[in-house]
């Protein structure tokens, strides 16, 4: 086992080194254009990271892959359009209301559709989440139509110039929100009793339930957090990507890839996975024809599954009898 650990360390180290070399090479060869790519990669990467954390939170508490995760982001984006762009509410109020609505939807769905499935196999629950995704997407299509909507940026103003690279002001909102969300999630899981209990339940559900951690509450809280993270991500990115009923699918798949690349169930892994994926994607889009941009996430996903299935920062799972 020691040899295998060492192998793994070399593998992860090698991947990190290769990534750094790629970043430096991009900066050297492309100069400020390269910096531009990396910065916008980090913007979209922060969003992937938030969605990936949603996947991870639900996965570690219930071992379910939630295929409706991307739809939370889509709902956040289109709700923001209705509340702020159409409803003329102030941005901060629209943000809070949109997050609350989507979070309530997430918690409600957990009670209505996931909780009754607690005695079924994981596959059945995964299929239920697919059903939820389809129904949410179709409902959004019914309410908001098929055309993408334009959401007003959080702050007006032109692009900001940093070292020759131009960034829209919204990027800074994205970075800020992502950082705050990561800190909040970290504090929840490390400083509150409920959060610590959920971590315990993720490690050993039986032992945790013996000391009074309710698996039902864990599952509800996990879905609530995942919906809140997903909707916040969808809202802050909305002015950049023009959300529509169908934009959740791709966001969800990318966030999922990021979660697997970083290590499903690991919060730091989700952040690393998201940022790496975002940056690689924009660099690819700059170098190759744009049609191939989306393939990077899935190539990386398959590569990681083949070489290091527990993800870059994940721990190998023990098999329990």
């Amino acid at each position: 086992m020691v040899g295998r650990d060492a192998d793994n360390r070399i593998l992860v180290g090698g991947a990190a080194a290769a990534f750094c070399v790629l970043i430096v090479a991009t900066l050297v060869v492309k100069g400020s254009t390269g910096l531009q790519w990396i910065m916008s990669g980090m913007t979209v990467g922060s969003i992937y990271a938030l969605i990936a954390m949603g996947f991870s939170v639900i996965y570690s508490s219930t071992h379910v892959i939630n295929f409706a995760q991307g739809e939370f982001s889509m709902l956040g984006g289109v709700l923001m359009f209705s509340l702020v762009t159409r409803g003329h509410l102030p941005t901060w109020l629209g943000f809070i209301i949109a997050v609350l609505i989507v979070t309530a939807i997430g918690a409600g769905l957990e009670r209505v559709a996931i909780r009754p499935m607690r005695n079924h196999s994981v596959i059945s629950v995964i299929i239920v989440t697919i059903g939820l995704a389809i129904a949410l997407r179709a409902t959004a299509k019914w309410i908001w139509g098929t055309d993408p909507v334009r959401v007003t940026a959080f702050s007006s103003g032109t692009r900001v110039k940093i070292l020759g690279a131009y960034l829209p002001p919204q990027s800074f909102w994205v970075f800020g929100f992502a950082a705050v969300a990561v800190v909040l999630v970290f504090l929840f899981f490390n400083r509150t009793l409920l959060g610590k209990g959920m971590r315990a339940a993720a490690m050993n559900p039986d032992a945790a339930s013996l000391v009074g951690v309710s698996s039902s509450t864990s599952s509800l809280v996990a879905w609530t957090i995942a919906a809140a993270l997903g909707s916040a991500a969808g809202i802050v990115i909305a002015p950049i990507i023009l959300p529509s009923f169908s934009s959740g699918a791709m966001l969800g798949l990318k966030g999922f890839s990021a979660a697997v690349v970083g290590g499903l169930g690991s919060a730091p892994g989700a952040v690393v996975g998201g940022l790496v994926l975002g940056v690689l994607e924009t660099i690819t889009a700059g170098v190759l024809p744009t049609g191939y941009k989306d393939a990077i996430a899935f190539l990386l996903l398959i590569l990681v599954l083949l070489v290091r299935p527990q993800g870059l920062l994940g721990r190998a799972e023990d098999v329990k009898v």
Binding site: A113, P116, M117, H120, S124, V125, I127, V128, I130, G131, L132, A133, I134, A135, L136, R137, A138, T139, K141, W142
Partner: peptide, 20 residues
């Protein structure tokens, strides 16, 4: 065109719940 997918999604969930 409008209702197919909503129905589909709900059908999938209901089937998993009541007729697993």
């Amino acid at each position: 065109g409008n209702y197919q997918l909503i129905l589909y999604g709900i059908l999938l969930i209901v089937f998993m719940m009541f007729l697993p």
